[in-house]
Design a binder for these strands. Sequence first.
DNA 1: GCACCCGATCTGTATTTGAGATGGGATCCT
DNA 2: AGGATCCCATCTCAAATACAGATCGGGTGC
Lengths: 301, 301
Amino acid sequence: MEFSDLSTFSAVARCGGITRAAGELRTVQSNVTSRIRALEAEVGVPLFERHSRGMTLTGAGRRLLPYVERLAALSREAMAATRDDGVPKGPLAIGAMETTAAVRLPPLLARFHQACPAVQLTLRTGPTAALVAAVLDRSLDGAFVAGPIDHPDLTVVSAFKEELVLVTARRWASLAALRKGTPEAGPTALVFRTGCSYRQRLEQVFAEFGWPCTTRLEFGTLDGIIGCVAADVGVALLPRTVVARSELNGSISAHALKSSQSRVETLFVRRRVTHEDAALRTFAACMQSSAPAVAARTSIV
Amino acid sequence: MEFSDLSTFSAVARCGGITRAAGELRTVQSNVTSRIRALEAEVGVPLFERHSRGMTLTGAGRRLLPYVERLAALSREAMAATRDDGVPKGPLAIGAMETTAAVRLPPLLARFHQACPAVQLTLRTGPTAALVAAVLDRSLDGAFVAGPIDHPDLTVVSAFKEELVLVTARRWASLAALRKGTPEAGPTALVFRTGCSYRQRLEQVFAEFGWPCTTRLEFGTLDGIIGCVAADVGVALLPRTVVARSELNGSISAHALKSSQSRVETLFVRRRVTHEDAALRTFAACMQSSAPAVAARTSIV
DNA sequence: GCACCCGATCTGTATTTGAGATGGGATCCT
DNA sequence: AGGATCCCATCTCAAATACAGATCGGGTGC
């Protein structure tokens, strides 16, 4: 049971055939054949059924496959733990929602970079679902997302508490004025392109106001949304901290909602591992120490 | 990171030197040297400190070592799960306390053998501590032991509930008679040789009767204890089911104790694994179905 | 029936692994 | 101080293994 054999096995299972797997593994078909045959001889049972269009896993192969994943993950972690001398360094990929990246991260990243200049930190923005998927498949080390998150392979820490506000053009002085001055079809909803976690909250708000929420404009960036809100194209639901500056300079109005609608928590998620990379560990510590009042650990399921 | 390299690493760490490890691995010293050097080159950090009396682990080596254990355990489990087609077969090593083996196991083993004739079952008796250790180091697949047991790597199931009785020679008609007819030094305690879990209970009983519990005779077998009790050499604490036959034929007397002293639970312990061997799984099911009234699952910590 | 795709197998080569021998450094004992 | 001993690194050659390329046979689809 060598690791190299297991990864060939995994490639053949994934590709559905020896020839295709050989291409992926940058080797020739005969080698893959012999490696698979050696593995089958070692465990003593056939792992694939051969048929004319390729190979499919047998019952034994299906039982082995998840172990290959686990062994690969464990050996990666072993390697990382062995190399890790406790000094934060190397690459660190962090993900965040657009709104979090705009106002919460700049001071945190500045402090982290000052504390750990040897870490090459990269930031990627996106919607919660994509960020969580990226953390799970290891393309991100950690991410700031909207809760709730509950996954056995993730640890979750409360990072920031946000108050969502309904953002409108300046001329709407209050929610009551907005309701009175808006046609029955309701205003246009300005939201992020895909998978924005706040969209669902916005629809709740619209439902309460009796608006059907049919007109929607999708944006890729925060500035686009705020700009269109200022031009009275529509309304948006955003964290108060995000719009604080625009509100101050008078380009928009922010309207408070009742707390059941406005309270959202930004969580920091990362993979659950026995040995955590020093850079990520330090980043999490840095984050928690920056916001001690809201950094209580949540229960992890 | 091949498994073979990791096992040589483990051997060198355990033996404290390349030459000794080479002997254990049935190879020559030069090969071990080159494998270790290859591994160190792969992870990029030295794993051992070389000194004149051998090698000792560096910090990186100490971080790697526990992963080697985990990887080996996981690959063993993967192999077993792959081979296991769900039909119970192959060897199965079960351990039990002397008293459990005497009265509880015969009917269970008979039924299990009838259900799974392809399983080569071996039975080993011993005290609880040794049985638990044997389960942990894989020399036993499961064991019947006295509770409580609480170990993160073990699953525990309630198997039997026993009532302990104080066993004396026939001439003692009651506990009161025994107390009156026994000198202040108390009777001789007849116990199993080492680590018997019931010994502690017996000492509690002696303490309550005001006996110092100084005289003790140790036995390796149940028959030895019962024989000596019948000959009035001393008294013993044994499950009622164990002495039922001897009591009926009049060779001894069994005296009930209050339930806080008499109630003990026999547990079945096995290693906690993702994929459990079909033979062991079937054995546990067989055990639980045989005693449905007492086979409630205990909480597992 | 023919072209095509797939996996098994064979063959020669390249690489890796293994065994044995040698050497240098450190320690221990006399 | 000097010899014996122990340990690991290194070298060399042989054996085993992995690899690339070519061929074969079975199955599928046009």
